[in-house]
Nucleic acid binder design. Structure first.
Lengths: 212, 212
DNA sequence: TCTATTATTGCATAGACTGCAAGTTTAGGG
DNA sequence: CCCTAAACTTGCAGTCTATGCAATAATAGA
C-alpha cells in the first residue's frame, strides 16, 4: 500500500501553528465575545506575528470556522454513483465520509460547538465552505441520477437542474444537522450522528409531503 | 380602509438616496469589478459623503445585494396556516408574496441579475438576508404542521425539528430558483416564475426520491 | 557544511467601519 | 411666515482588517 511518510519538522510546526491559531481564536472569542477580539490579540496568544496570521487564514472568521471539508475519496464517489435507491441518504453518507476528517481534536470541536451556538451567522459562513465542494457534488449527483433515471440522461438541462436542486436539498439537511448539533452544548452526540439523523428525518418527511 | 398617506419630502429623499447608492454600487461593480470599487467611489457617484453611506448600508456587499424580503402579511400567513396539503408549495407562495415587494425597479433588477452571475458568493450572501426571516418562518411552518399532523403537535421537540428541516428545504428551493434566474442573462423569466418552477420541480423530485 | 526552498516577520499602505460633535434640513405648530 | 424639535448629513479622528514587498530566519536535502 501507499507508505505513510512521517511528516518532517516543517510540516509538524505548520500544523502546530495552524492549531494554535484556531485554539487562540476560539478561546478568546469564547471568553470575550466576537467583536472585542482582534487579530493582534489572537496572534499574541498564538505566539506569532500578526502578519503570519494571514499566512494561515484569510480572515478572523475563517480561523474560527476552520477549513472546509475535503472532497470524498474517489472510491466513495464511485460507490455512490453506482448504487441505486435512497439518493439523499447516499449523499448523506458521502458528506459524512468527508466530514469525519479533522474531527479528532476534542478541544477545538467543543469550542466550535459553543461558537456555533453563540454566533449562528458563523454557522452559515461555515456552510459556505461547502460551496467550493458544491459544484463538484452537483456533478457527481448528476452522474448518479443519469444512471438511475435514464429518462433524465436524455435531457441534459433538466438533469442539471435536478441534480442542483437535489444537492441544495442535501445541503439543507447538513445545515439542519449542524444546527441541531450546536443547539445543546451538553448532548454527547457527534456531528456524524446528527448528520445521520437529519438525513433519516429528511427521508421520512419526504414521504409525508409528496403530493402524488 | 387604511389611508395611504403621501410620503413626505424627507421620506422621498431617503428613498432616492437609498436607490442612488444601490445603483451607483451596482453600476460601478458591473463596470470595473468588485474589488476595484471602494465606498469612496460609490459615494462620489451617488453624491453623498462616505460617512452617509453607512447610514444606509452597513457594508458594500449589503448595498449590492439589497435589503432582505419583508415578512409576508398576516393574512397570507393565516391563509397558509389554515390550508392543508402541498406544504412546500404553500411555503413557496408565501415566499413569493414577500419577494414581489421591491421588485419593480427594472434597472436595479437587471444589474443585480448580472451581479449574481458574476459573483456567486454574493448570491449566497443574499440568501443570508433570509435568515431573520427564517426564524419567523419556522414558527409559522410549525403552526401549520401542528394543525395538519396532529401526531406531531404532541411532540414539540419533534415538531420543532421537522419544521426547521422543512423550512431549510424550502430555502434550498429558493436558492435553486435564484441560481437558475441568474444563470442566463437573456431569459425574460422573472424571479417569481423561477420560484414557481423550482417549487414545482421540488414537489416532483420528492416523489421520485421517497423510499417508501 | 553548504545551498535552495520555504516560512516568518516588519514596514508601509489602502480600505472598511465606528463614535462623536457640529452643521443642515425637514416637519409641524403657532 | 417663523420657530423649534427631530431627523439627517457630514467631517474628523481613530481602530481594525487586509495585502504587497523586502529582509531575515529556519528547514530540507545534498
Amino acid at each position: 500500500m501507499t507508505d505513510v511518510v512521517e511528516p518532517g519538522l516543517r510540516e509538524r510546526k505548520r500544523l502546530a501553528t495552524h492549531r494554535a491559531i484556531q485554539l487562540a481564536a476560539l478561546k478568546l472569542v469564547h471568553d470575550r465575545g466576537l467583536d472585542t477580539v482582534t487579530i493582534d490579540d489572537i496572534s499574541r496568544v498564538a505566539d506569532i506575528s500578526p502578519r503570519t496570521f494571514f499566512n494561515y487564514f484569510p480572515s478572523k472568521e475563517e480561523a474560527l470556522v476552520g477549513d472546509g471539508p475535503s472532497f470524498p475519496s474517489d472510491e466513495a464517489v464511485e460507490l455512490f454513483v453506482s448504487r441505486t435507491g435512497n439518493l439523499l441518504g447516499g449523499i448523506g453518507e458521502l458528506m459524512l465520509d468527508s466530514a469525519t476528517d479533522a474531527l479528532h481534536d476534542h478541544e477545538i470541536i467543543q469550542l466550535r460547538k459553543a461558537l456555533a451556538a453563540d454566533y449562528p451567522h458563523l454557522t452559515v459562513l461555515r456552510m459556505q465552505t461547502f460551496r467550493a465542494f458544491e459544484q463538484k457534488l452537483v456533478a457527481v449527483v448528476a452522474r448518479r441520477m443519469a444512471t438511475e433515471f435514464p429518462e433524465l440522461a436524455a435531457d441534459p438541462i433538466r438533469l442539471e437542474s435536478r441534480s442542483a436542486l437535489v444537492t441544495q436539498v442535501a445541503i439543507a439537511a447538513v445545515h439542519h444537522a449542524w444546527q441541531n448539533w450546536a443547539r445543546d452544548p451538553l448532548a454527547s452526540e457527534t456531528l456524524a450522528d446528527r448528520l445521520a439523523e437529519s438525513f433519516a428525518e429528511l427521508d421520512d418527511v419526504l414521504g409525508s409531503l409528496a403530493t402524488h
